[in-house]
Design a binder for these strands. Structure first.
Lengths: 214, 214, 214, 214
DNA sequence: GATGAATGAGAATTCATTCAT
DNA sequence: CATGAATGAATTCTCATTCAT
């Protein structure tokens, strides 16, 4: 029992993050979580419908806090580019600084079929929404392309971040995650291709330069 | 019981894909799988250690087949670019044409903690290896950039594909997945940014143009 | 369900003695025991690790009670001889008056490999200890011989009692066990040999006729 | 696989003794025994009804051999006393020289409820019969007492030997079993009591040192 | 609100045994 | 006779959840 929040609901969630990270969702016993929170097993059920609900609630509560914190920070930036940089850096450093949470989000949460079936609309959608706003913002400024679906770009960004963090978690969280931020932002904006050379495909000259020169 | 392979091991895996997709991993009973395969429950345990082993084996067996099929097709292409196109298209069409397998790979498999903890090295690593070869190939041709970590590019591609397919599965597999291929390849190679405009940031001239124009 | 002890642990043990005696250890179902005790199956596992633990616990709990009861009675007697008589009689009458317990101790318990491998130290050692104390006591008085190992004498007494009770159980508990007490005590103290004749060994005359004639 | 008897039935029994001794009856798999005997699992069932039958058969086959060997040796002796000595020594040395068999007889066999319920009449009864013959023989010579039940004397001898061997097995077979023979024979014939003093109560003089000191 | 003893549903799994070859 | 792949019955045990106090 480490957390001392008087709010029992939050205390349970804090304990659950630790226990889930250490034991894994299925091996974790509700009684363990309760004990860690200094409560009786039954008490957990005054605040949560069941064990999965605890897991999902971790995600929702933390995501709400994350999204609003991220949004605040992101919106202080002026350009789409710097907003993207901000988001990427916060995403990576957020997990890097809280390994238990990282384990919950990247590993345990996926073992909830309710989560995997996207039964949890709230948090993730809001986060995707925030990413999308950044994309739209960059488009309005003319620095991000309009030809590709904004939704797809959002998946590109989120999917990559998610995979990168998962890989880091699986590897034992040994290397520095945040230091990948710049390369990631570079990749998101410029892609993996050598700009010009791509235009010189086998077919000759690319004519659609206008796309970029607009 | 649909599959009639004489190989009982494969028959069990075929049945398991169907049952897992329909019922979900936890709701699925070993006896159901056995029945679907026309076998007695105990027979499953002659071929697999336990239920999770069946799930993991689906992944391994199918991945092996996928990787070798994808590799063969990809390697027929000449350029890194066309190889990337080939891989993306095959990844998306592969799942689109086999919804049960898609459900297993994108949803059920993640509920195996052994899988999530990357206890399954083989298949996924080989697939990532194939992606990486394509990246390296494009680099040798000079069409893909060398400044960014190849590993990171690999995660970009795989993470995005995975997220895109997952989203499609969750949405009920209603839209056409393959049709996203071109946009994805475009994003991977060119990024989301307006190339030139990026260089002309609000702050003035970018000096690192050489990077691309080199 | 016969027993009504409020202590659930004891209620389970009481029920288990009956069920084990009637069904045998392996045929006995935990659910049967629970039902007999008026409890749910799961409740058994709040008090015992598993079915074998129930069996072993019967032995331990009953032995503790037996040893202290026997010790109290035995120690009221003055001489080693009368103490031995007391123990033998109590051993035999104890089993005779509780056939279910006899069946558990003599038959079912032996089917626990943990018991047979003497994984159960407590009870039996204490009982053997009590026998040994009686032997030592008789030795101090000078009525029991000192030339033979006390441990061996203890095994003689216990081994014989155990075999005699087992035979009685196997035979269907038809004859009177307690009535063997005097003969057993006689055998333990005087052996099966004709004193005199034994003395006519190569080594010379025995003078102690009085032993049997006196 | 060590045994090379061409008789498959005996090969199975030899293997079973080893496997039962090493694994215990319940942990032992029929397939293990078959493999050790260099046979297929199904073959075991050509020679034995089931696994328990293998265990019981070990006892019967070995006991038959033991009883006839013991009887032959015992009957070569002339007096009841020397026959008893012979039996005790052979009983102890028989187990001491074959630890696997000792483990089977003293531990594993007891876990068969059929054995414990004396469903196995043959072997044990014959052995008890042999002991009894020795007792009767001594009685005819006048060296063994007639006042006590011969059956009881038989139980005394067998029960004690059995307990002594069991204790030795449980203790890890560390000490020398055969060296207990003389003390045991002494105990069986003379008992644990100081002859005269018993009759003269606790207060009398001991005069009969001759009895043991010769 | 909090407790925690009691519940009881539920399925994976084993492996002795069979029998078609 | 021998095989060994397939069988399938059968029961323990767990632990999330409840609810009387």
């Amino acid at each position: 029992m480490r957390s001392k929040t008087p709010d029992k609901r939050l205390r349970i969630l804090d304990s659950a993050v630790r226990v889930f990270a250490r034991e894994g969702f299925f091996k974790a016993k509700v009684a363990q979580i309760a004990e860690d929170a200094g409560l009786a097993p039954g008490t957990v059920y005054l605040y949560f419908k069941n064990k999965e609900d605890v897991l999902i609630s971790i995600f929702e509560v933390r995501m709400e806090e994350i999204v609003s914190r991220f949004r605040a920070a992101v919106m202080e930036k002026e350009t789409g580019r710097s907003r993207l940089e901000c988001l990427v850096r916060m995403h990576l450093s957020g997990f890097q600084s809280d390994p238990d949470l990282a384990a919950c989000f990247q590993v345990e949460l996926r073992q909830s079929s309710r989560f995997m079936r996207r039964g949890v609309k709230g948090g993730l959608q809001q986060y995707l929404g925030l990413i999308r706003e950044i994309v739209e913002c960059g488009r309005k400024e003319g620095i991000f392309r309009r030809e590709v679906s904004a939704a797809l770009v959002t998946h590109l960004i989120f999917g990559t971040l998610d995979e990168v963090v998962s890989t880091w978690v699986m590897s034992g969280m040994k290397y520095n995650l945040v230091s990948l931020s710049d390369q990631l932002v570079d990749l998101f904006t410029n892609g993996m291709g050598q700009g010009e050379i791509l235009t010189e495909g086998p077919r000759g000259h690319r004519v659609d330069d206008t796309r970029r020169n607009g």
